[in-house]
Design a protein around this nucleic acid. Structure first.
Lengths: 159, 159
DNA sequence: CTTGACCTTAGATTCAACTCCAGGGTTATA
DNA sequence: TATAACCCTGGAGTTGAATCTAAGGTCAAG
């Protein structure tokens, strides 16, 4: 049995976030104290762990709610329906794994190409590392002005 | 050479999105026509492909900008710096792959546990499928009212 | 030489997922 | 019994990533 602050601290989230999950039906505490305090059980904590892990791999809260909803009473959902939902998510996950493996390979190749020897810096662009048929996109010593709403840090000098 | 509308159509994004990427320095068209139209080259298109793939696996635009910025002029960045940045992303990607494999296994287990035989629906909760030490979180025929700002679809009846 | 499908900008709006704030109740401790 | 550290609600504000709107320039076809 945890109060909201305890659960929040244990999983390094804000109490606001837990209230937000409650409000949106993702994680409703198993009970309330006499004075209205949220009381979370170990099962609630497990549900939270699931939510946080799922979020970390890119599921939206809507996705997560759908996954969690497959804790259903069998009379209302056919097995085939469940399998349908799950298989869609599964396909999703498999695509993501494949894509991530592509990035993993690319990043490794980039690391190797860049820091192997004296001729190292010749292929220091991720685009080149990714697909060697790429025409080089090189960064010369352009110094275009930048307003701060830029994501790009291209060519910024260092040191 | 593509105009903004062509590139957008080819990669199924909005022209607004491309202008947004331009404004934030993620994808600046290689040139402008006399009348100010954005002109994208094949290299720009490749950069866009990278952005879209990276986004799809959960990199933020800030992450992506950082990755793309490693197309740098070697004099300003040391190899070790590049390796540092890349290795951080690599570790990131590896964690994500591991987590996704966990979800893959879980979803497969859920699919199997649920739709194997006549006793099928006994373990139809993803939480149970994930960690069998979980105390069952079951969904009875509660019908609590729901305002629409809910993510959760728990226990909704079907058909 | 105008119509319509393009393109431009600046700025407002949307959406998800928080995060914070105001105003007020509760509970353990000095 | 009062002070601080909790908790509550409702509602406003923030951030990231678009997406839309308004007001206007460009260009090929009829």
């Amino acid at each position: 049995m945890y109060r909201i602050g305890e659960l929040a601290q244990r999983y390094e989230v804000k109490t606001d976030t837990l209230r937000f999950y409650d409000k949106h039906g993702l994680l409703t505490p198993s009970s309330r104290s006499g004075s209205g305090y949220r009381i979370y059980t170990e099962a609630d904590a497990e549900r939270l762990r699931f939510i946080l892990r799922a979020k970390a791999v890119g599921f939206s809260l809507t996705d997560i709610a759908e996954l969690l909803s497959i804790e259903l009473d069998k009379s209302n959902w056919a097995c085939a329906d469940v399998k349908g939902v799950v298989d869609i998510k599964l396909a999703d996950v498999e695509v993501k794994i494949a894509e991530l493996n592509y990035f993993k390979t690319s990043l490794q190749r980039l690391s190797d190409a860049c820091c192997g020897g004296p001729e190292s810096a010749e292929h220091c662009s991720i685009l080149e590392a990714l697909e060697s048929n790429s025409s080089a996109i090189k960064c010369e010593n352009q110094t275009h002005d930048h307003d701060q709403s830029h994501y790009s840090k291209n060519c910024q000098s260092k040191g």
